[in-house]
Amino acid sequence: MTPAEYHACDRRRHPPALTPNYKTSVSRSPRFAALSLQNSLSEITGPVFGHNDIDPIDNDLIRNYAKEGEPIGERIIVHGRVLDENARPVPQTLVEIWQANAGGRYRHRKDTYLAPIDPNFGGCGRTLTDADGHYFFRTVKPGAYPWRNWVNDWRPAHIHVSVFGRAFAQRLITQMYFEGDPLIPRCPIVQTIPDPAAIDQLIAPLDMNAGVPLDCLAYRFDIVLRGRRSTMFENRLEGN
């Protein structure tokens, strides 16, 4: 593939840095505008991962931390494709997820919520997309949990998703929500995103066709990264 630059980051799609209803953003948001760079080799390249980096079981959260049994909770498959804005699949890219257990408790030394840890559930997984950009995980549906923002704020059920893409310019961390959750419109973190259509894009629909009868349900979550520019009349990068 010819090296190419990426479409400009769609700033209307992403949350702004300063979103006061999500309190922590107030002291952690830059006050000056980001300086726009045109892509050089530093931005159009990024880390490459292979099957040596991970194990096949890493995408199965029902088994990857099982000790004496399986985790408690609603068994689900989460699957989808990683695409770019041109609808081209992003193959061989690393997708990592992390989440709370079915009761909304994270396996993290800093989480002190009173809901108990599940001894058979770690809460993280990772996988590489295949040649068509497809990925899948098996896990349990996470529970909602409370957090210290406004007095009675609760996060909707969500799974954190990290994806690399082909270039450092495509690096993304986001959160996946579940169809029909009434906490979604009440969440100050969801509502950092100004465009309702961009919020809808973070909500995974129930996908009955992808589940396994008498075993587990499934949700579908496609991820769109920045597109690579076409090369017509390209003012090429040095050295290419």
């Binding site: 769609d10 949350p15 804005e85 990772r126 961390i173 959160q175 950092t192 961009a198």
Partner: peptide, 18 residues
């Protein structure tokens, strides 16, 4: 064109995954 998936904060428990 498809539209980019919006970013969300990595949150305080980012270590669990990464």
């Amino acid at each position: 064109y498809l539209r980019e998936t919006a970013s969300q904060t990595a949150g305080p428990y980012v270590h669990i995954g990464l």
